[in-house]
Design a protein around this nucleic acid. Structure first.
Lengths: 335, 335
DNA sequence: CTGAAAGCGCTTACAG
DNA sequence: CTGAAAGCGCTTACAG
């Protein structure tokens, strides 16, 4: 019933194996033969049966993504969207796993059941040492987006220059005249937060501005409510506060709400800078000045390298740190 | 190398087919035999090879989800998250397709290539008549979440009582004393928007409050910027405006920003009600009063019924309209 | 209640 | 450059 390689082979007057060669783009086929086969494929509207390919190849042609952040967070869903596109482009499917849904067993079973060939972990999922240990011991190809510490020496990853990004954000504030700059940051058990805090401090240091404890507010998780309570805290503890650097855009959104609520204006009274450049950053009023992460590029690098690892277990490790970019919108004002 | 049914069979001293019966939960197996097999499975840590199952069953055990909204929208990613969970619970995988990525061909090829057994369309994807026609002609099991009009008589769907939800929201505003209530609504080519507008009008009608053209602002798409420009429009055209009903939460977020920006307070000067109860609704300042959609329930019904359709092409159609619920938070104030 | 055989649609060696 | 055979790990009839 279904159009199979066999039917294509008969139609083209060649062997099944030759059809297989053409379909898989192998090169030891005459131009003439290839065209006959291609014609038959077009005519019969042949589409390969992936299940069969998977079974015979012993590959799932599917990549697992383990999410620690909720998919409903804008950063995660944007990332997954790009990963999905890249998977599709490379002939792979995407299987989603979420933390808190017994992810360790789910992933292990999926790998053993040949449902996935490799795994991408987000920064939170990557903190699960049991998971990593299990993946290591089963020799599952995997890589981490935004790694933390305590990793295997040969764990591959892709991340961004958090330090540099934060520094650029704060340097921008300093350049336009701010000196009393608050900092809203998430839990320091995550290296990204440590790096962003460092960037903040480095920028101050280079400008010769002394740091003040009361200007740094630290809490976890780094979400809307951190931004909200943090901004109120900074405002009430620093009379001269004129700017706030937030460790991500959702935190910035929380800070902005709190600032308005406190009766201050953005950017007239207080300037705000975010981090990530998620979809909402440009939509907020006023549009948020922030540090852009190259989310699409991260997704592409991760998928492509994971596929390399899948096809060649001895593939060189990948450790890439991507640059970020300051996006100036309307939440900052020169003093 | 891999633990197969054959190895389990040998280990348990039964035939391969008996193992298959136990694994698939068929009932014509003695309790005793079953336990022997179960023991062997546990001992060998057997996990079924899905690729093999797919090939032999001729089923992909995978459900496709076609998204018209960007996955980065909170409503979509929340829905997908629930769909994914339900798929996992039912032994299915999830394959994501996004509009604008040549979704028609992607889906058709995936179905022909036995990568997916059926499809769930979101409301926007469901508007693609070519897609639906193609799916119909290929007899692909599919259903729509929040359908529009122009459908086949036997298209299954699950949706919510948009009309009733909107009416409840506006009735609530009326009950606490509001009479000059604005309405921010998306394009009327989508039935959901038509229904929500109707609900708004019905509530006014029942309360004997005359409708005013200047109180309804209509634009597309129904996103943050609609809320922002719409609220400014309503404010400048209605001196007595005391409340705004928004067709979704993102629109409400836009409206809230604009209201603050215009120097008005929420809820002191203007009350706001949203729709959907997305994740951000509770995080916004002040927390947004809104109409909750049972997103999880929608996801479950959709997945479970699609699986029914997949396994029994003659399955009865499903047309479910779920109730909504008013969630009172802090954006509304009695007059 | 249990089992032996054939087949799902490909790919992987192995020949020639 | 091309092909025939065996096999991937299950399930689907068909027997008994």
């Amino acid at each position: 019933m279904a159009v199979t390689m066999e039917r294509v082979a008969k139609h083209a007057g060649v062997s099944l194996k030759t059809v297989s060669r053409v379909v898989n783009g192998e090169d030891n086929v005459t131009q003439e033969t290839r065209e006959k086969v291609l014609h038959a494929i077009t005519e019969l509207e042949y589409v390969p049966n992936l299940a069969a390919r998977r079974l015979s190849r012993g590959k799932a042609m599917t990549i697992g993504v383990v999410l620690g952040w909720p998919l409903a967070s804008t950063y995660s869903s944007t990332m997954v969207d790009f990963i999905q596109t890249e998977c599709t482009n490379s002939g792979y499917n995407l299987a989603l796993f979420s933390k808190g849904k017994d992810e360790l067993n789910q992933v292990v079973q999926a790998y053993q059941g040949k449902q996935i060939d490799g795994v991408i972990l987000d920064t939170i999922a990557g903190k699960n040492a049991d998971l990593r240990k299990q993946l290591d011991s089963m020799q599952v190809p995997y890589l981490v987006i935004h790694p933390n510490s305590g990793y295997n020496d040969n764990t591959s990853y892709v991340t961004i220059n958090d330090d540099g990004g934060a520094k650029a954000a704060v340097k921008y504030l300093i350049d336009i005249g701010h000196t009393s700059i608050g900092c809203l940051i998430g839990g320091l058990e995550r290296i990204q937060n440590v790096a962003r805090l460092n960037g903040y401090r480095e920028a101050l240091l280079e400008a010769g501005i002394p740091g003040k404890e009361s200007l740094v507010y630290l809490n976890d998780p780094s979400d809307f409510s951190l931004g909200h309570s943090g901004a109120l805290h900074l405002i009430s503890n620093n009379n001269d506060l004129t700017a706030i650097f937030c460790c991500n855009d959702e935190v910035a959104m929380g800070a902005m709400s709190a600032i308005w609520q406190a009766g201050r204006k953005i950017p007239d009274d207080i300037s705000v800078v975010g981090f990530d450049d998620i979809r909402y950053a440009a939509m907020v009023i006023p549009p948020l000045t922030t540090i852009r992460q190259p989310i699409e590029q991260i997704a592409k690098l991760a998928v492509n390298h994971l596929i390399k690892m899948i096809n060649d277990p001895s593939a060189a490790q990948m450790r890439i740190v991507l640059p970020t970019q300051l996006v100036v919108r309307e939440t900052c004002k020169p003093i």
